[in-house]
Design a protein around this nucleic acid. Structure first.
Length: 425
DNA sequence: TCTGGGGTCCTAGGACCC
DNA sequence: TCTGGGGTCCTAGGACCC
C-alpha cells in the first residue's frame, strides 16, 4: 500500500502562542526573542511582512520595531511547552501513530486512511485552531521529505489555504520546481552553496541528480533526501523518542563574568539542570565536558575559549558527584583576567540505568539507594513547587550572571498566579 | 551597551592489535 | 631504496535539524 505522511507545522509558533493570550495583538506584528533577549527567533506573519529577518540580533532591528510598533517578547518556554502539548494531543486524535518532531511540528501517519486526504487535512487544521488557538499548515506526501515540501508549498502559496496533498498530484514536478534547493529538508547552507556551483537551484533540479554524485558529495544522508524526493520512503516514522546520548546545559550570561566564584555558581546551576534531565530519562552518565568562553563578538578584547572532559569512575546521575567532577574541570580551565560570556556542561556517554556494569569502586548498594532516594525527592520537590525552588547549596543564590529576560509574558497556563484575568459584563 | 540553545549523524584518520 | 593487511575503537570535525 502506498504510504502517506502528513507534516503538521505550527505557523510562527512562539509568536502565535503570545497572540493566543493577547487578543489585542491579533493583527499586529509580534516577535519573540532568543534566550538573553538576544536574537529574533519567531515572527508573526505581520512581522515577516515588515521584512524583519529571522535570527537577527534585536538591537539591529530597533528602528524597524519602533517605527511599526512591533510587540516584542522574551521567550517563555513554560508557555510554549504547554501549548505544544495541547497541539500534539489534538493531532493525536487524527492518526493511529505520529512522531513529535519538534516543539511545533509532528509527522502523522495517514497511510490507508479511508478518506480523501485534502479535506482531512483541512479538518485537522480547523480543529487545532479551534481547540488551541494555534494556526497550522498541513503538507501531505508519500515520504516525510515530500510532506515537508508540501508543507512549505502550503505556506508559500495562499491558493492552497494551508493544506496541500502531494500524494495524488500529477503536477508534482512543476511544484518541486517552485522550491529552492536550500529549502529542502536535509540540505543546509553548505550543501546548497555546493549544489549552486553545479547549477542545481530547485528541488526538482536536485531530484534529477545522479545517485552516485549525491552519495559522494553528501554521504548517505543526501542520498536519502534524493530518494525521498523521488517518492522512495527511506526515513521511517519514529514514534518513541530515542533517549538522549548526550545532554547539554549552557547559556550566555546576562552580563560578563570575571570571577571564579561566579563561574562556579553558574556551572553548578547547569550541572544541576543537566542532571535533572538525565534522571528524567532514567540515564546514567559516564563522562562530562565543561567549557568556558569569552564574548567572541567583541573584537578588541582578549579572547579565550577552552573545554575539557573527564570520565567518571562509575556512571552516575547524582548531582553532587557530577558537581565535584565539573568544578574540578572548571578550576583547570578558568583563567583570571578575562570577561567570560558563557559556561556550559555536557553529559557524555549516557547509558540507560540498569544496564550498567557493576564495579569494585561502586559505592555500597545501600549507600547508592540512599542517594537515589535523595535525588528522587529533589526532583519531586522541584516538580511540585516549581523549578529551582529546591537546589543544592552550591548552585548559589546570587545569580548576578542570570540571563536578561525583560519582556516575558506571564506564564498563563502553568502558574496559578499568572492566569489571565477575564472581565465579565 | 546588546549577537540563543540543544541535539543528531556521518566520515576520515590515528592508535592499537593480531 | 623497498617496510603487510585487516579489524576495531576512538576522536575531531563537518554537515544537518529545530
Amino acid at each position: 500500500m502506498p504510504r502517506a505522511f502528513a507534516l503538521v507545522d505550527c505557523n510562527s509558533f512562539y509568536a502565535s502562542c503570545e497572540k493566543v493570550f493577547a487578543p489585542a495583538l491579533a493583527n499586529r506584528p509580534v516577535v519573540v526573542l532568543s534566550n538573553n533577549d538576544g536574537c529574533i527567533v519567531a515572527r508573526s506573519a505581520e512581522a515577516k511582512a515588515l521584512g524583519i529577518p529571522m535570527g537577527k540580533p534585536l538591537f539591529q532591528c530597533e528602528g524597524l520595531i519602533k517605527r511599526h510598533g512591533v510587540a516584542v517578547f522574551s521567550s517563555n518556554y513554560a508557555l510554549y511547552g504547554d501549548m505544544s502539548a495541547r497541539v500534539m494531543a489534538t493531532l493525536g486524535r487524527f492518526t493511529p501513530s505520529m512522531e513529535i518532531y519538534s516543539i511545533d511540528e509532528a509527522f502523522l501517519d495517514l497511510t490507508g486512511m479511508p478518506i480523501a486526504l485534502t479535506p482531512y487535512g483541512r479538518r485537522i487544521r480547523e480543529t487545532v485552531l479551534r481547540w488551541t488557538g494555534i494556526p497550522v499548515s498541513v503538507g501531505i506526501g508519500p515520504t516525510k521529505t515530500l510532506a515537508k515540501v508540501a508543507n512549505k508549498l502550503a505556506k508559500q502559496d495562499p491558493a492552497f489555504a494551508g493544506v496541500l496533498d502531494l500524494t495524488g498530484r500529477l503536477d508534482r514536478e512543476a511544484l518541486l520546481a517552485k522550491i529552492g534547493v536550500e529549502d529542502v529538508w536535509g540540505i543546509g547552507r553548505q550543501y546548497a552553496a555546493m549544489l549552486e556551483r553545479h547549477g542545481v537551484r530547485t528541488a526538482l533540479d536536485f531530484a534529477r541528480l545522479p545517485r552516485d554524485f549525491v552519495k559522494k558529495r553528501m554521504t548517505v544522508g543526501g542520498l536519502h533526501t534524493l530518494l525521498e524526493l523521488n517518492g522512495v520512503s527511506c526515513l521511517p516514522l519514529e514514534q518513541a523518542p530515542a533517549p538522549k546520548k548526550s545532554i547539554v546545559s549552557s547559556r550566555s550570561f546576562g552580563v560578563p563574568v570575571t570571577t571564579l566564584e561566579d563561574m562556579r555558581e553558574a556551572l553548578a546551576w547547569h550541572v544541576s539542570r543537566a542532571a535533572e534531565k538525565l534522571r528524567a530519562q532514567h540515564g546514567l552518565t559516564s563522562g562530562l565536558l565543561v567549557y568556558v568562553q569569552t564574548n567572541t563578538f567583541i573584537a578588541n578584547e582578549p579572547q579565550y575559549a577552552a573545554s575539557d572532559t573527564t570520565a567518571l569512575p562509575v556512571p552516575t546521575a547524582h548531582t553532587s558527584e557530577l558537581l565535584r567532577a565539573g568544578l574540578k574541570l572548571l578550576e583547570r580551565l578558568f583563567k583570571q583576567g578575562y570577561r567570560y560570556k558563557k559556561v556550559g556542561v555536557m553529559l557524555l556517554g549516557i547509558e540507560v540505568s540498569g544496564s550498567v556494569q557493576g564495579s569494585l569502586l561502586a559505592p555500597a548498594k545501600e549507600e547508592s539507594q540512599r542517594r537515589k532516594a535523595l535525588m528522587r525527592a529533589l526532583d519531586q520537590a522541584n516538580a511540585k513547587w516549581g523549578k529551582e525552588m529546591v537546589r543544592l547549596a552550591a548552585t548559589g543564590l546570587k545569580r548576578s550572571w542570570a540571563m536578561r529576560q525583560e519582556r516575558r509574558s506571564p506564564r498563563y497556563t502553568t502558574m496559578w498566579a499568572e492566569l489571565p484575568a477575564v472581565k465579565a459584563g
